[in-house]
Design a protein around this nucleic acid. Structure first.
Lengths: 343, 343
DNA sequence: GCTGCTAACTAAATCGTTCCAGTCCATCCT
DNA sequence: AGGATGGACTGGAACGATTTAGTTAGCAGC
């Protein structure tokens, strides 16, 4: 049952059927009423989206391209919040959300995705080839990384990390350390060498976070090169665990008494594993996180962290894509939250 | 730049271009090579998905219709796991995932969604009108509820809840209680009357869970009608909190010493609020959850719960939609996990 | 009765592909 | 040599809508 069938059945032109569904002012109310009721009766459920999108060039679909696998992103609190902010705005404007993973098979993405009216890219590195394969001429907003000639949204990573590190360093520390997230270019889950990591990194946000930490170290009279660093490859409990065990199981003289973590997931894993070892927080070990996810605030000890409003970040990206606000480069403010893990 | 433009430019037919992209065996390797490289050079990034989907009738897009708002679903661990299972299978088969919310504006869903090749419906009640508006003749799998004439996937809710309640009731209890999740037809966040809730409920899964609990009560010589029940409207910390505070702040003589919770989120909220009140678990209060989410197993006390493999549930639903396995009614097994909250 | 205007509707081109049914030509078989 | 075979490529009709540029019919104004 197509629009054409219906037109023939009712003895009107296809244009009239189309107008009945799309432009009520173009035909008399009673004819429209008649068409709609007959359509229902004959089992015609409105214009086919595929044909419509071909003809009009718009699908009311916005694609979100996620750097990581969908499996990871959907289980990550920060990515989920971002998505829900995006979904919220799209929903109210009658658009829907297509999820694409950039990592799995970048090659196949563009083909499937050229159906979307716009693209929100989250956490990809600019170098990814996928990037250039996206259909040109369609709006594109990058979230959490910078790319030339396109709108971007992210938080003030460097100042935020500077501020929280400064806070942490106000209390004397014998052995501070940093746990980075996906900082290195080559995958590496464990201890890393500072200089090398910084030089090779293209991950702009984690790099900015580290820069903030290091500025605070310098200011506190600590040589950043002396601060031990570890790197975490994926922001999950499972991947964090071995690295953090390695840290916590160091001989007491070498074990850090302050851990600056690049995410709340890392910080929460530290809390869990420290509790298991009978380490007291913050007496034996102080730590800070980043993100401000809900899970970190439910139970004691509440994380000392930087709260970023990922939901709002998603809303902004969505509004930019829909042209509800100017698509320009935008930096969001964060908020430091002093919890129990580093008073 | 369209396929036709490219054909004219290269002096070949459109069919040949199409074949170059879709059916390599239909033309000589060198011509294909030539076409692909010229396409790249001229900025043609492959067949347009909109036109292709009209012509072929397939879009390689599967829609997931979520009963709740997208915002809620994306932040809920169980829904996220389901989605990641779905995404995982779709991804490997070159399909993508369109997210639709059934709750927000059911009316607008069908129009936008008729682009999808198939539908996975999660947690909707059969009565929803949206249901009948979905394009007919396209595969549909229901997850976590039953609907006639369509494939369904869910876990063995009744036996699982019977088993865990039986386990809990082996230790003598003075005042057991049940915290339901979205059991009542009318929204109600607080204490409910047992009979009324059961009679009016169309939520098949929560109803099955309650039935399991009640079977165990009867077997243990407890009159289910005497067991106090509460209802939670949304599976979030914020919505759970006031109800659970009400329960925990009851005079000690009335306060339950065993709480059978219908979700891990509820159980975790109980743990958090009980800790704040200095209640010892399990000495002062024993409790069980349902779902087996990761968050409930990280930190002490680990939840005693029923683990359902939501990721696998998603995988199965996706495989059914893609025709990789027979689309029939399927009940998955669960696994009881004895944690610290109810040894 | 003629003109002009508007509301209501229609005819037909178009969107960018896919794919069926050929056409053409070189090679192979007998 | 003549017919059969098959590989390589083409023409053109769909797919199901939207939209522009009309064509009517009805009516008011003079």
């Amino acid at each position: 049952m197509t629009l054409k069938d219906l037109a023939r059945e009712l003895g009107v032109s296809t244009a009239t059927i189309s107008n009945a569904f799309n432009r009520p002012d173009q035909l008399s109310p009673k004819l429209r009423e008649h068409i709609l009721s007959e359509a229902r009766r004959l089992g015609y459920s409105g214009p086919d989206a595929r044909a419509r999108s071909l003809r009009t060039g718009r699908s009311r679909i916005i694609a979100v391209v996620l750097a990581e696998t969908l499996t990871y992103s959907l289980n990550d609190a920060v990515a989920s919040e971002l998505l829900s902010g995006i979904a919220e705005v799209l929903d109210t404007r009658g658009h829907t959300l297509l999820l694409l993973s950039g990592r799995q098979n970048a090659a196949s993405v563009p083909g499937a995705s050229s159906i979307a009216d716009g693209f929100i890219i989250y956490g990809l590195m600019p170098s990814l080839t996928l990037f250039s394969d996206l259909p040109p001429e369609r709006p594109l907003v990058a979230v959490d990384f910078d790319i030339e000639d396109h709108a971007t949204v992210h938080v003030d990573n460097e100042p935020a990390c500077y501020a929280i590190a400064r806070h942490a360093l106000r209390t004397p520390t014998r052995r501070p350390a940093v746990i980075n997230l996906r900082l290195t270019e080559q995958p590496c889950n464990g201890r890393i060498d500072g200089d090398q990591a910084l030089l090779s990194s293209k991950r702009t946000i984690t790099r900015a976070r580290l820069a903030g930490f290091q500025r605070a170290f310098v200011e506190a009279g600590i040589d950043p090169a002396e601060v031990p660093m570890w790197n975490i490859e994926e922001n999950t409990f499972e991947v964090c665990t071995p690295v953090i065990e390695e840290i916590l199981d160091l001989p007491e003289a070498e074990r850090p008494d302050l851990l600056l973590c690049m995410s709340d997931r890392i910080a929460l894993t530290v809390v869990t594993l420290a509790e298991q070892r009978g380490l007291r927080i913050p007496e034996d070990l102080r730590l800070t996180g980043f993100d401000g996810i809900a899970e970190g605030q439910y139970r004691a000890p509440r994380l000392t962290t930087v709260r970023q409003d990922s939901t709002e970040k998603g809303r902004i990206a969505a509004r930019m894509i829909l042209g509800m606000e100017p698509a320009e480069s935008r930096v969001m403010a964060t908020e430091m939250m002093i919890g129990d893990t580093c008073p």
